[in-house]
């Protein structure tokens, strides 16, 4: 690439060096992101701060750091099954949803990325339109649908209901990644005598591993943060933590400390997941498939 314009390289480099020297004023670029991150962290800091305080301290005085840091709020959550089961429930249906979404989306995304077929565009649009459907519209019909199957208050009900917006999303993300894989790979594999399932599992899936990661991340994320549907479809046994949090409003007012501690604990799984996929996030977003 650089061989054929050797003579001009020197000129260009010189000009570049000059330009670089000219254009290196003091750098304040870090200022905007830092300010923004500061703004993002402020409410979270306050939540964490509160979670280590006793209710008495929260209500009686204003302290930036807890006077007597206490773990009692967390102890309440970890010692009461009705609290910590909320986390387990949430994680169960989120994982179920992610697995279902990815496994049905994989073949469909392959079809959309490799073939034209009758009604493919309409199908794709219809799928995407579900990603945009207001959850509020579906609350009541979902409740009736799942009660008629006797599935209310089970994890699978929530997992299936969340497929409404996660499957289209997964198809969309995966299709983007798959379109980036050259078709020749498929053809070569078929010539080598691979059957479709074998090719798909042995050759293709490893190639789009990062795409699967990104898709799984977004499925996890949207299922984890959704509350309206999850709350409607559950009563006791599968109730998500986000819904259990509303319990802290008791007869003696709101138990702010426990509420804050529960809030902090809901942030942790998300933070962990995002940490694991941090290197793929930008790539996933680059496809603009969120």
């Amino acid at each position: 690439m650089s061989d054929n314009n050797k003579p001009t390289t020197h000129l260009v480099e010189g000009a570049l060096r000059q330009a670089n020297q000219m254009k290196k004023p003091k750098n304040f670029r870090w200022f905007t992101p830092s300010l923004y991150i500061f703004f993002l962290m402020l409410p979270i800091y306050w939540l964490v701060n509160m979670s280590f305080k006793t209710n008495q301290e929260i209500l009686s005085k204003f302290t930036l750091i807890p006077d007597n840091p206490t773990l009692s709020n967390y102890a309440v959550i970890f010692s009461d099954p009705s609290w910590y089961n909320g986390y387990i429930n949430s994680i169960i249906y989120v994982v179920m949803n992610t697995v279902i979404s990815i496994s049905v989306a994989l073949p469909a995304a392959y079809a959309f990325s490799r073939y034209r077929f009758l009604g493919d565009k309409h199908m794709f649009f219809w799928l995407l339109s579900n990603r945009m459907a207001p959850a509020a519209v579906f609350v009541l019909p979902f409740f009736q649908l799942y009660s008629s199957f006797g599935l209310i208050d089970t994890h699978i009900a929530v997992a299936l209901a969340h497929c409404l917006f996660n499957v289209p999303l997964a198809v969309w993300i995966l299709e983007g990644f798959m379109s980036g894989i050259p078709k020749e790979i498929d053809e070569t594999a078929y010539i080598d005598g691979y059957s479709f399932p074998k090719f798909f599992i042995k050759v293709f899936t490893p190639l789009i591993a990062s795409g699967i990661g990104v898709a799984a991340f977004f499925c996890f994320m949207f299922s984890w943060v959704e509350l309206l549907i999850a709350r409607t479809l559950t009563t006791v046994d599968a109730k998500p933590i986000a819904a259990i949090m509303t319990r802290t409003v008791g007869a003696s007012g709101v138990d702010w400390g426990v509420l804050a501690a529960a809030g902090v604990l809901t942030i942790i799984p998300g933070a962990l997941v995002i940490y694991f996929v941090r290197n793929y996030i930008a790539k996933g977003f680059a496809l603009g498939r969120v």
Partner: peptide, 29 residues
């Protein structure tokens, strides 16, 4: 990236709760 993406992964009602607490005159920053 991780810090900025953090608010996206907080359950929506917890977002509401965080700001509810944050904005209250008696206990919020």
């Amino acid at each position: 990236l991780v810090l900025m993406a953090l608010p996206l992964l907080i359950p929506w009602n917890v977002v509401g709760t965080i700001w509810q607490i944050f904005g209250r005159a008696d206990i919020g920053l």
